[in-house]
Nucleic acid binder design. Structure first.
Length: 459
RNA sequence: GUCCCCGUCGUCCAGCGGUCUAGGAUACCGGGCUUUCAAUCCGGAAACGGGGGUUCGAAUCCCCCCGGGGACACCA
């Protein structure tokens, strides 16, 4: 068994791997076939993404097939979750099927196999007879030629005693009937493929092309699964990850285009192809996802970001809808631009949005470190000047503060942190003048007065 | 255990026989800038699993070993 190498020269890569068969590139039909036994995790999400990208890149058809043949484990909620996850990722499907709708067809083909002598009944179930001798080779577009001796295989059930089909069988019948040209799926299925090829042969059908993509591993290097915690695609939405970031991250897990790291979905569609996919499993690195999310937060249109932020602020209970509306979309967009510079997720941004919303700011005891008795009068005086401020731009605030530091007798190095804490309750945050400008003169003045009072009451 | 797949910095990738004193990204460490944090800039540490071949030449090809993962259901 020799793994095929990517050829150099002008031979089209896929053609070479396909052993000379010519895949008709304008009629690509691929499918994502999840089983609705739980939420869609990122491994499944990546498989869906690769299929979708392959279909869109080749102007083909992306099919969604719900593999719910195991009625005891499949649920309607899981199906809804899968739809919701794909929609969130922005992976639209052209056709959708449900395997349970095709049981009659599966039984019909099973019957055909039995009539041909390729299957036999035992214990009420229909078993496929695997040849004793010989071997079957999978010509995988990614793994190369993989040969398995028939002696390694056992006869397997294709129709359960209750008449329902089992995975390997339903999969073959459906892929054939749906005209699937490329089966792009996780590497855990590579071992199933010889059985499926045997089925195609017994039925006299031409098998599709196969491409088994490498697995995604958890931090402990085992196949990513539910027990790794936040593996659900929708969990990333809850964590404040942008779909663009997760798509970008997932695409880079096992696929690359030179040294480029950031890809928009449009770029991925234009660049993605099977030759760029590698064959080794990848560990899911949360830190890098967070970095990408930050990149995408910074590339997102401020108004769209404002809408996403508004929603988070409400769902997280940072403020109510009324307060958010009072701020207005424009001001919120300006706040979002400041917030996204320091926050890596929408959640972090929302949690730090309090200063931009109306109302007083609670001052923690540590505020006393910069809100000293010495700056109290200056803050009170500054509040009056802010009220009379003609130019509420960052430059206007900068002139005001620097002028104030000068003639109020408090050095800017002490005044700036004091104003920051008075307005935000925190010693860290965006550039002070930008911050004040976004918060606005009225609210700034109110909080400056409140801070002056707070200092006085503490003495 | 058997079979299958994989093996470059901690992690994700580049590398397709010479251009590799191995490149990018992230994470980490140090410094500049800043009222602060972040961003940004500069610098640093960090890898070809091991052993045999083939070749003038190997991270790149072959073999063995080791290591990791996956599959071995009337689950998918």
């Amino acid at each position: 068994m020799v793994a095929a190498r990517r050829p150099s020269g002008k031979v089209p890569w896929a053609l070479h791997r396909a052993g000379g068969r010519i895949p008709t590139m304008d009629s690509v039909r691929v499918r994502f076939a999840p089983s609705p036994t739980g939420y869609l995790h990122v491994g499944g999400g990546r498989t869906a993404l690769f299929n979708w990208l392959y279909a869109r890149h080749h102007r083909g058809t992306f099919i969604l097939r719900i593999e719910d043949t195991d009625r005891t484990r499949s649920t309607e909620e899981a199906i809804e979750q899968i739809f919701a996850s794909l929609r969130w990722l922005g992976l639209d499907w052209d056709e959708v099927y449900r395997q349970t709708d095709r049981f009659d067809r599966h039984r019909e083909v099973g019957e055909d196999l039995r009539n041909r002598g390729a299957a036999y009944e035992e214990g009420g179930a229909l078993w496929f007879r695997v040849p004793r001798e010989g071997a079957t080779t999978v010509r995988d577009l990614l793994a190369g030629d993989v040969t398995v001796q028939h002696s390694e295989l056992k006869d397997f059930v294709i129709l359960r005693s209750d008449g329902t089909p089992v995975y390997n069988f339903a999969c073959v019948v459906d892929d054939h009937d749906m005209g699937i040209t490329h089966v792009i799926r996780g590497a855990e299925h590579l071992n199933n493929t010889p059985k499926q090829i045997l089925l195609y042969q017994a039925l006299g059908w031409e098998p599709p092309l196969f491409a088994h993509v490498p697995l995604i591993l958890g931090p402990d290097r085992s196949k990513l699964s539910k027990r790794h915690g936040a593996g659900s695609v929708l969990d990333y939405d809850r964590r404040g990850i942008l779909p663009e970031a997760l798509v970008n991250f997932l695409a880079r897990l096992g696929w690359s285009h030179g040294d480029q790291e950031v890809f928009s979905k449009e770029e991925l569609v234009a660049l993605f192809d099977l030759p760029g996919v590698n064959t080794s499993a990848a560990v899911f690195d949360d830190a890098k996802l967070l970095w990408l999310n930050h990149e995408w937060l910074r590339r997102t249109d401020p108004h769209r970001l404002a809408d996403l932020l508004a929603e988070r602020i409400v769902t997280l209970g940072v403020a109510d809808r009324h307060a958010v509306e009072a701020v207005g979309r424009e001001r919120l967009a300006r706040a979002a631009v400041l917030l996204r510079e320091r926050g890596k997720t929408l959640v972090e941004m929302a949690e730090r949005a309090r200063p931009y919303l109306p109302g007083p700011i609670p001052l923690p005891p540590e505020a006393a470190e910069v809100l000293t008795p010495a700056v109290g009068p200056a803050l009170a005086a500054l509040a009056e000047r802010v009220t009379a401020l003609g130019d509420p731009s960052p430059a206007g605030f900068e002139a005001l503060l620097k002028g104030g530091a000068e003639d109020l007798g408090v050095p800017i190095k002490a005044l700036a942190p004091a104003v920051r804490v008075a307005v935000t309750g925190s010693r860290v945050g965006p550039g002070l003048y930008d911050l004040l400008s976004v918060v606005g003169p009225e609210v700034v003045a109110d909080r400056l007065r409140a801070a002056a009072r707070w200092i006085k009451e503490r003495r």
